[in-house]
Design a protein around this nucleic acid. Structure first.
Length: 279
DNA sequence: CAATATACCTGGATGC
DNA sequence: TGCATCCAGGTATATT
């Protein structure tokens, strides 16, 4: 579910309510997520500790504790973080609860359990973060997200430009919904081999990436099936989607029918009129 | 190395 | 109503 905008909306929703709060207790479900829940590390380094701030890298949230530990949370496909009164009954698929010193809970709910929870202990946090960050791609809002760098990344890669955009080791935060939308806005066919794109075309991808991701953040994210912000409110960017999920509907720009294809195993939407495939 | 397939899960939509 | 089937926003790992 959550791509960069949804993760960022979650971060912004949690930042003020959590900054300076103390996690008095941590509890968890019996299930594993993508990996096992690190019970011991949660107990040792997160319980009874104060939260300093929350950052985002790629689609990961980094809850930084005053003691130097970092709680790393990935929402997977169906993960949500909610802020709720502590006495509320646990819901199905609640897998982690941070009990705060003001009686509120932060609850991580994830039905498909594709999310992940990792703790970096204070002693090793800097090294672990450096190792982690090196494996993640360019941040779309970062200073290195420039045409020269994308041109270099694409050099020699015959893979479709959409697959390159979604490759998290190369570019961070862009998943299937926003890859489709960005390429539509940039008027580039998703199946275009990446190495054929010009510097000018990469420039359009950069500009449209930033514009669309920012619009989506401002709209509270996209609630396609079940994304909710921390207060339980949905996002509204799905109402502005031009191509994603709109097979056979008229293109908002030229009126031609939107095509749905499968590319790299993922549903791909584009307008054959506005995004011509050039060989 | 690059590209594709598969596995991890539940639940909602769809079709019979 | 029930049941089978397909599909879903991500990513790590295996396979070609």
């Amino acid at each position: 579910m959550p791509e960069l905008p949804e993760v960022e909306v979650t971060r912004r929703g949690l930042l003020a309510p959590l900054s300076g709060r103390t996690v008095v207790r941590v509890s968890w479900s019996a299930h594993r997520l993508r990996g096992p829940i690190p019970r011991k590390l949660l107990q040792e380094h997160i319980a009874a500790q104060q939260i300093r701030t929350i950052d985002r890298r790629a689609k990961y949230l980094l809850l930084r504790m005053v003691n130097g530990a970092v709680l790393v949370i990935h929402l997977g496909m169906t993960g949500k973080l909610g802020l709720i009164q502590g006495q509320t009954t646990l819901h199905k698929h609640d897998h982690l609860v941070l009990h705060l010193d003001n009686g509120l809970d932060v609850r991580f709910n994830d039905s498909r359990r594709f999310g992940s929870i990792v703790v970096w202990p204070p002693d090793h946090a800097a090294q672990l973060e450096a190792d982690f960050s090196r494996k993640e791609g360019l941040e779309p809002f970062g200073p290195a997200f420039i045409a020269d760098n994308l041109l270099a990344l694409a050099r020699g890669r015959r893979v479709a430009v959409k697959s390159l955009l979604m490759n998290s080791r190369l570019i961070a935060g862009i998943g299937n919904i926003y890859a489709n939308e960005i390429l539509f806005a940039a008027r580039i066919a998703p199946q275009q081999p990446a190495h054929l794109l010009t510097e000018k075309e990469w420039g359009r991808i950069i500009q449209e990436s930033r514009r669309i991701l920012q619009l989506a953040i401002d709209a509270g994210g996209s609630s396609i099936s079940d994304f909710l912000g921390v207060s339980g409110h949905p996002g509204y960017f799905q109402l502005q989607l031009a191509v994603y999920g709109r097979k056979d509907a008229p293109c908002p720009r030229c009126g031609q029918a939107i095509l749905k294809t499968i590319q790299g195993g993922r549903a791909t939407y584009h307008c054959p009129g506005c995004q011509p495939h050039v060989e």
